[in-house]
């Protein structure tokens, strides 16, 4: 036996198996045992963990609506001038005691002993799995089948405020003038339904923080922003599993 020849032969231990081959083998096993069904019927990974691994942005082609209205907030650019808030107020007749969108303020300690301020715009997340819609006893609020906007029909609202307790984002308030819950509708009533292409807040933003658009369209800015390499995209409170459509990034 020529030891030298044997040594030159490719190794047959596990280190030589490429990950592609390994996956193929695994898939084969899972297919045989009936567990691999495209990950939809019986997923081995819970939705929450899958989101944590892949980020909150759904995979391309997985947007349930068209136009799939989305807002991307480029957080680091926000300077809290609140023109968005004012524009929203006048456009949607929001009373002084309420808001459809607002700016929160976060602080992060810096290495040099100071801190930086981060302004965080918040609004209705128009979730794909909206808790508010589930709890409404009268379907006064619903997820629009075409656009994915979470809509309100004031005349149907009985004012039980369950949606307010169910919303993980505190995006709803009771408007006495309308005698109904009021919330952001991505300016559907005031603008989009009349042919405008963006929301009042996005139009008013001087710093290009709020980008509104159709995520189902790969040419849209929102799509581009959410699919830029080397960037992080996050959503608020992903743990509640509401699958929000308002994304945050610093891209």
């Amino acid at each position: 036996m020529d030891i030298g020849k044997l040594q030159r032969l490719p190794s047959e231990d596990l280190s030589a198996i490429t990950s592609r081959e390994r996956r193929k083998f695994l898939r084969l096993g899972l297919t045989i045992t009936g567990l691999y069904l495209g990950g939809t019927v019986l997923s081995l990974v819970s939705a929450r963990r899958a989101e944590a691994a892949g980020g909150p942005v759904p995979a391309t082609g997985q947007y349930p609506y068209n136009p799939h209205y989305t807002m991307v907030l480029r957080e680091a650019r926000c300077v809290d001038c609140e023109r968005c808030k004012e524009a929203c107020k006048t456009t949607n007749h929001v009373p002084d005691y309420g808001y459809r969108t607002t700016i929160l303020e976060r602080r992060r300690d810096l290495a040099e002993g100071t801190y930086e301020t981060i302004f965080m715009p918040v609004l209705c997340n128009h979730c794909n799995r909206p808790p508010c819609v589930r709890v409404c006893p009268t379907t006064a609020t619903w997820k629009d089948k075409k656009t994915g906007i979470v809509m309100m029909k004031p005349s149907r609202c009985i004012g039980c405020k369950t949606c307010m307790t169910a919303c993980p984002y505190n995006a709803r308030y009771f408007q006495e003038e309308k005698r109904a819950i009021d919330k952001c509708d991505f300016c559907w009533q005031a603008r989009l339904s009349k042919g405008e292409t963006t929301t009042a807040c996005a139009a008013a933003c001087p710093a290009d923080v709020r980008i509104f658009g159709n995520l189902a369209d790969p040419k849209s800015r929102v799509y581009q922003l959410l699919h830029t390499p080397d960037t992080i995209v996050w959503v608020l409170r992903p743990e509640v599993g509401a699958l929000p459509n308002v994304f945050y990034t610093n891209a």
């Binding site: 680091a76 809290d80 001038c81 930086e116 302004f119």
Partner: peptide
């Protein structure tokens, strides 16, 4: 860069 270093906003 560092917008909020000078921009204190309506809140500030």
């Amino acid at each position: 860069t560092r917008c909020a270093a000078c921009h204190i906003g309506a809140r500030g």
